[in-house]
């Protein structure tokens, strides 16, 4: 079994668009965008792949930070950004197709978010 070399680079939120644009210019494809709630912060992973080289960048933000949308570079990213918005309550600014919380309709609002997790414990 071969072990894949996976690198994760932390990126500041202000430089996100620039870094993603560079990936796009180098011919990487967008693999996924995924959000993780850790403590009081959200870790957002943007993964890219080119010829089976897997690269990952990570933005760590507070729940009320607005994330710039990367749909300008990767048109198909709207599906991940809407998912992230619906499940975690992360605000994404400037999506090309904004479902405004109707992509995944859940009985609890933002079920995976930090606020929902805290409500459960009380």
């Amino acid at each position: 079994m071969t072990i894949e070399n996976q690198s994760t680079t932390p990126v500041e939120i202000g430089k996100l668009i620039g870094v993603v644009e560079e990936f796009r210019n180098q011919g990487y494809r967008l693999v996924q965008i995924g959000c993780t709630a850790t403590g009081d912060l959200y870790e957002i992973n943007y993964s890219f792949d080119k010829d089976y080289t897997f690269r990952n960048i990570r933005v760590t933000v507070t729940p009320d930070t607005e994330i710039p949308s990367i749909t300008g570079m990767y048109w198909g990213a709207f599906i991940y950004e809407n998912e992230m918005h619906d499940l975690f309550g992360v605000n994404v600014r400037g999506m090309n197709i904004d479902f405004k919380g109707t992509l995944i309709r859940t009985s609890v609002k933002n079920p995976f978010g930090i606020a929902a997790g805290k409500g459960e414990k009380q």
Partner: peptide
């Protein structure tokens, strides 16, 4: 660039097959 994978990507000439990573 839209992130197609699997037979959708391969049907359009994109040579992506994760089995080639040798897991």
């Amino acid at each position: 660039h839209l992130g197609a994978v699997g037979p959708v990507a391969r049907g359009s000439g994109v040579n992506v097959d994760l089995r080639k990573t040798g897991y």
